[in-house]
């Protein structure tokens, strides 16, 4: 699909990064302000990785996958 602008490796990396950030925040590994940031910032790479579309890529016309 044309709207997907992330390659497989990009999506996997984002999902892993998101899960790690969420774990750091919600499991209490990182506390305080940084922990709070991790708690909510983690959703961003997770969701963009699962969907396959990055709004920032779209704005700057970047794609890590091959255009269809």
């Amino acid at each position: 699909m044309q709207f997907i602008n992330e390659a497989a490796w990009d999506r996997i990396a984002r999902v892993i990064a998101g899960i790690v950030l969420l774990y750091l925040g919600w499991a209490g590994v990182v506390t305080g302000t940084v922990g709070t940031v991790c708690k909510y910032l983690g959703f961003l790479p997770l969701v963009t990785g699962l969907v396959g579309w990055c709004p920032a890529y779209s704005v700057f016309r970047i794609r890590t996958n091959k255009a269809q």
Binding site: I19, L22, Y23, A27, G49, L50
Partner: peptide, 13 residues
């Protein structure tokens, strides 16, 4: 596979 794995990891978390 990606969504299932992510769902499972999030569920465990």
């Amino acid at each position: 596979v990606l969504r299932t794995a992510a769902g499972a990891a999030l569920g465990l978390m």
